[in-house]
């Protein structure tokens, strides 16, 4: 196990220890030992499903120091609000012997294939802690195809895996799906950094579709268009800026503010009040 994974593993171990009663703790330690030593997957399979019965589902409370440490060890990762069974499952998965790649991957893949909803949530949320990170791209893309809200959130929210490892097409699907299912865009790690022209153009088509159906458009959509405003789409930004409601207008203003396209900058100059709010951080993508 890599050094940073080891440090993360022991931190999680400590946090679980603070939350479990002696009996549950003993059970988990014992299962972990068997999982580390076994060639087959029988203890893993049994242990993984049984976790909530032994640990309960009470929420985990962590200190701000622990929170900071986790986010540093696995970029931006957060376990805030996790129930203890979910965290115990993550830790148990980290005990699987990873010395032989294909055996390790098969063991975990088989858990995905037989998983019920809470297990899927734990598995997908644990993606950033798996060994051989590059091997889980297809699995992550498969998870984004899910129509189960909790499962999508396990991948989208505070999970650094997608931004770090997904190829552009799969990443774009994640962001599109987030818009289609009304997810909180602010909780997606890397959403601004991985903005791209292709995604911007798909999102603009989507906005046109929503308008044709007389439906509203999520103002965060313009956040991902911002860096790619050009002659082809400026009319759309202008439209939102001029006839949008309060939030839409603010979104258009933010999009213009972060754009290098000259006409967009000029458009923003018409509203000195909004520019001032942005400069003073009274208006931003996180507080819109």
């Amino acid at each position: 196990m890599l050094q940073e994974r080891k440090e993360f593993e022991s931190l999680i171990h400590a946090i679980i220890g603070e939350h479990l009663a002696t009996e549950a703790k003993q059970w988990l330690e014992e299962k972990a030992m068997l999982v580390r030593e076994e060639k087959t997957a029988s203890n893993l399979n049994l242990g993984f499903v049984t976790v909530p019965r032994k640990t309960g589902r009470q929420p985990v409370h962590i200190t701000t120091d622990q929170q900071r440490e986790i986010a540093e060890q696995i970029d931006g990762f957060s376990i805030n609000g996790w129930p203890v069974d979910k965290l115990s499952r993550l830790w148990l998965l980290m005990q699987v012997n990873d010395s032989e790649k294909s055996i390790y991957i098969n063991k975990i893949e088989n858990l995905f294939k037989a998983a019920e909803m809470n297990e899927l949530v734990a598995l997908y949320a644990s993606l950033p802690s798996f060994a051989y990170p590059e091997e889980w791209q297809l699995r992550c893309a498969e998870g984004i195809r899910s129509n189960i809200g909790n499962v999508l959130e396990a991948i989208m929210y505070h999970n650094p895996y997608p931004a770090k490892h997904l190829p552009e097409k799969a990443w774009n699907q994640l962001v599109l799906k987030a818009f289609f299912t009304d997810k909180n865009i602010n909780s997606i790690i890397g959403v601004d950094e991985r903005a791209n022209k292709e995604l911007a153009s798909i999102l603009i088509d989507y906005a046109h579709e929503r308008w044709a159906a007389r439906r509203t458009v999520n103002p965060h959509l313009w956040r991902l268009v911002s860096k790619f405003i050009d002659d082809t789409n400026f009319a759309d930004i202008e439209k939102v800026f001029k006839i949008g409601d309060g939030t839409e207008k603010k979104a258009a203003a933010l999009a213009c503010y972060y754009s290098n396209f000259q006409p967009a900058r000029q458009l923003l100059e018409q509203e000195t009040g909004l520019t001032k709010d942005i400069e003073e951080n009274k208006l931003s993508w996180t507080n819109i």
Binding site: N147, G149, N150, L152, F180, T181, D182, R215
Partner: peptide, 11 residues
């Protein structure tokens, strides 16, 4: 078409 997490739900 639908997911069970309020895909674009409107009143």
């Amino acid at each position: 078409c639908s997911s069970f997490d309020g895909e674009n739900y409107q009143e």
